[in-house]
């Protein structure tokens, strides 16, 4: 346990100071409350659920990591498995050589990352359980770049940054708060079970946010945007799943 905590501390130090400042100052209530609190009893329960989970996770525990022997024989593909998009199909046929990920919004140096740029960042490999909100779960090995290090490579986030929004090729979008952004297991995965991330699982890049359910782990990431408010984005709830009516916080 102490080893794990030390690891997190190191990671936290790697994260740009503004990001931490954002977490500690403006991020305080964000940590315990979804960006949009729904009305009625459901909204009250949302706040209770999120604040209780976050309070129990105050020391930023890692999600369980498993041994190789626990890796599931296959990793299911679910939801969108092959976006019907001409440019995307072009990237697939070119093995994503000309693909680029714009990282913008409240970062000090907005820029684009090629897949090679992302792979050149420090690599994190983790064998974790994907927990789908539908009920299934499967253990797999993910390889990727910690999101915090990618943001640092874009100059770090500005002090007012509160959420990171991910836009996918098929129009899906999701967002996470700084509490998850600074976590070492929050990675942009490009490898699954020793291979390049397959198209069915979100190639070339998908989010792994291990302490939240499957629907937060957005696939086919096309761009990343750091924001101080989710209000102006699409329907303003912070994600397509929460636009539909799922709880924005996917911890349960």
């Amino acid at each position: 346990m102490s080893e794990r905590r030390a690891g997190i501390t190191r990671r936290r130090m790697l994260v740009s100071v503004p990001a931490l400042g954002g977490l500690l100052v403006t991020g305080c209530s964000d940590t315990f409350r979804p960006p949009v609190v729904r009305s009625g009893l459901i909204g009250a329960a949302d706040v209770l659920t999120m604040s209780t989970s976050r309070w129990l996770q105050a020391d930023q525990p890692l999600a369980r990591e498993y041994g190789r022997e626990h890796i599931a024989p296959e990793f299911p593909t679910w939801g969108q498995t092959n976006p019907d998009d001409e440019r995307y199909q072009q990237h697939v046929s070119e093995q994503f050589r000309h693909w680029a990920l714009p990282v913008g919004g409240l970062v000090e140096q907005p820029r684009s990352f090629s897949l090679a740029d992302i792979k050149a960042l420090p690599v994190r490999t983790q064998i974790t359980a994907h927990v789908c909100e539908q009920g299934w779960s499967a253990i797999a090995e993910w390889v990727g770049a910690p999101l915090s290090l990618l943001l640092e490579a874009a100059g770090g986030v500005k002090p007012e940054a509160r959420y990171v929004v991910f836009h996918a090729v098929d129009g899906w979008y999701e967002s996470i708060d700084m509490f998850e952004v600074v976590h070492p297991q929050t990675i942009l995965a490009y490898g699954l079970n020793g291979e390049e991330l397959p198209v069915g699982n979100g190639a070339p890049l998908r989010l792994r946010v291990e302490r939240q359910c499957g629907y937060k782990n957005i696939k086919f990431i096309q761009s990343i945007e750091v924001v101080d408010s989710l209000a102006g984005i699409r329907r303003g709830t912070g994600g397509l799943s929460s636009d539909f009516g799922f709880h924005w916080f996917g911890g349960v």
Binding site: R64, S137, R211
Partner: peptide, 24 residues
């Protein structure tokens, strides 16, 4: 034990039941 946030905070939940699917 089925909730990833709680299972991360209390990993003993997974050990107690022997996995998320068993808990389910």
């Amino acid at each position: 034990a089925q909730a990833p946030a709680f299972a991360a905070a209390w990993p003993w939940l997974l050990d107690l039941f022997g996995g998320r699917q068993t808990a389910r």
